[in-house]
């Protein structure tokens, strides 16, 4: 089970919800389960090759999964996952 913080630009895919709870043991699994619940999210997070897009970061707790085990980064019972896309507004 993980609590996923949905960033503002993706909230229209989650019907405005900023926090979504999804069962998953890894980030890869979490994205599949998120897609099942909120179709369209996967495409915003992963590219054609199934890799995390280069302008999106996914954090488990405070740590960026790019510096952990990528999509295989394990999730605990109460992991907090943050999706942080690049935004440019000023």
């Amino acid at each position: 089970m993980a609590n996923v913080r949905i960033p503002t630009p993706l909230r229209k895919l989650t019907l405005g919800q900023d926090l979504v709870t999804v069962p998953a043991a890894t980030i890869g699994e979490l994205i599949s389960n998120l897609e099942a619940k909120h179709p369209g999210l996967r495409e915003r997070l992963l590219d054609d090759k199934g890799q995390v897009r280069r302008f999106v970061n996914i954090f488990v707790g405070e740590e960026d999964i790019r510096f952990q085990k990528g999509l295989d980064t394990p999730l605990g019972e109460h992991s907090e996952v943050s999706i942080v896309p690049a935004i440019a507004g000023g």
């Binding site: 630009p9 915003r44 897009r53 280069r54 302008f55 999106v56 970061n57 690049a86 935004i87």
Partner: peptide, 18 residues
């Protein structure tokens, strides 16, 4: 290091929701 590449035009949130 944070965001290696900018998003392509289609992936950036559209202007009218900004």
């Amino acid at each position: 290091c944070l965001y290696p590449e900018p998003p392509p035009a289609g992936m950036a949130p559209s202007c009218n929701e900004a």
